[in-house]
């Protein structure tokens, strides 16, 4: 086996402030094990990329972090966030998702106005003041680099936006809730290169205030965007470390094969 022997030395523990950490996570779809024994610690205010082939479990892992797998899959193990195990049944899952936002692969704005897309969740969480709502709309749209494009059409339907704009609206919608952590599940895979680059610029800006974990199929994206990278293979975390190290001197054979494009 040699370098394929997946010892603990291939999984790095960052020596920084940790935003969220999983401890021995197993995920089952019915009796089918999709993730086994995944322990990863994600540093605060950094972008961490999850890479791997289709079916490697990276999206399943990401969705476990804010309990989006509830009712779909069984997640065992601990997910530590602010010294609480948020994978416990006692935890208020809606509060978890307020702190840990998520953006999906395909842009999914609500069939409402651009403004309403952002204010809807705020109102549901008890924020009603007109000034506060307007402030949050502007702040979040600015943060998502969408403000200049939509400031004159806030009351138009969000469905009239282009794919890239809609995706940035979804990012704005998430950060309007002022979360700690932003999970992104291949946010640019349905977008053209120009929109992709806008999203990446936005994310680089956002990491000053948010911890970002992003699933991506695109190796270039992972290498140019992220600070840390985890490589998933067949439901296991094979390697995790600083992106530079993963891409220049991977420790496991299989990581090297994947990043040099030999499979996946």
């Amino acid at each position: 086996m040699g370098k394929n022997n997946l010892g603990a030395e291939t999984i790095m523990i960052p020596r920084e402030e940790i935003a969220i950490e999983t401890k021995k996570i197993d995920v089952y779809y019915g009796s089918n094990k999709a993730i086994s024994n995944a322990s990863l610690a994600f540093p605060r205010f950094k972008i961490s990329a999850l890479i791997g082939a289709s079916g490697s479990g990276k999206s399943t892992f990401l969705r476990s972090l804010n309990r989006m797998n509830d009712g779909i899959a069984t997640v065992k193990g601990e997910i530590m966030y602010r010294s609480t195990n948020i994978n416990s049944v006692k935890v208020n899952v809606y509060q978890v998702r307020k702190h840990i936002g998520m953006v999906f692969q395909r842009p999914n704005p609500f069939a409402r106005s651009i403004r309403n897309n952002i204010t809807f969740a705020l109102k549901e969480h008890g924020i009603h003041g007109e000034d506060e709502l307007n402030k949050r709309v502007e702040e979040s749209l600015r943060a998502a680099a969408l403000w200049d494009e939509v400031k004159d059409s806030l009351d138009k339907s969000a469905l009239s936006l282009s794919g890239g704009q809609a995706q940035r609206l979804c990012i704005a919608r998430s950060i309007a809730l002022k979360p700690d952590i932003l999970l992104l599940d291949e946010p640019a895979s349905a977008l053209d290169p120009v929109s992709t680059s806008k999203i990446e610029t936005t994310l680089r800006e956002l990491k000053k205030k948010y911890t970002i974990i992003i699933v991506t199929h695109n190796m270039q994206q992972a290498s140019r965007l992220s600070d840390y990278t985890a490589f998933f293979h067949m439901g296991k975390v094979v390697e995790y470390g600083q992106t530079n190290n993963i891409f220049t001197s991977p420790r496991a054979n299989i990581t090297e094969k994947y990043i040099s494009g030999n499979f996946g």
Binding site: N66, M68, Y94, Q95, V96, R97, K98, G101, M102, V103, F104, R106, N108, P109, F110, A111, F120, A121, E124, H125, C170, R173, S174, L177
Partner: peptide, 15 residues
Amino acid sequence: VPDLQREAGLSLGIS
């Protein structure tokens, strides 16, 4: 109604 809409709602911490 696409499931994506439901996921969007859930991911924003809405029941």
